[in-house]
């Protein structure tokens, strides 16, 4: 492996990533629960026509 690092990635910031991932795990769990509740209540959120995904819709040839 040939890592060419030309900026300081911040070792402390990399150590912090384990904790950031734990928070992210919590957020994903919470959002999944909310999604199930909303689905059960019949609430659906639509993506706007100017959202990131809509912008590239015509370019997508693989997913």
């Amino acid at each position: 492996m040939n890592f060419i690092l030309y900026f300081d990635p911040g070792l402390g910031a990399m150590i912090a990533q384990a904790a950031i991932a734990a928070f992210a795990g919590f957020v994903i769990f919470y959002k999944t629960c909310m999604m199930y509740i909303k689905e059960w209540l019949g609430i659906k959120k639509k993506k706007g026509p100017d959202s990131f995904d809509e912008a590239y819709k015509n370019d997508q040839t693989d997913s």
Partner: peptide, 24 residues
């Protein structure tokens, strides 16, 4: 839960690492 770890915690992690050196 998103801003705290990505900004505050990361900022803290960096300053603590600077004090502790970079041998880890």
């Amino acid at each position: 839960p998103v801003i705290y770890p990505n900004i505050h915690l990361m900022a803290k992690g960096n300053s603590e690492q600077r004090r502790g050196g970079s041998t880890e």
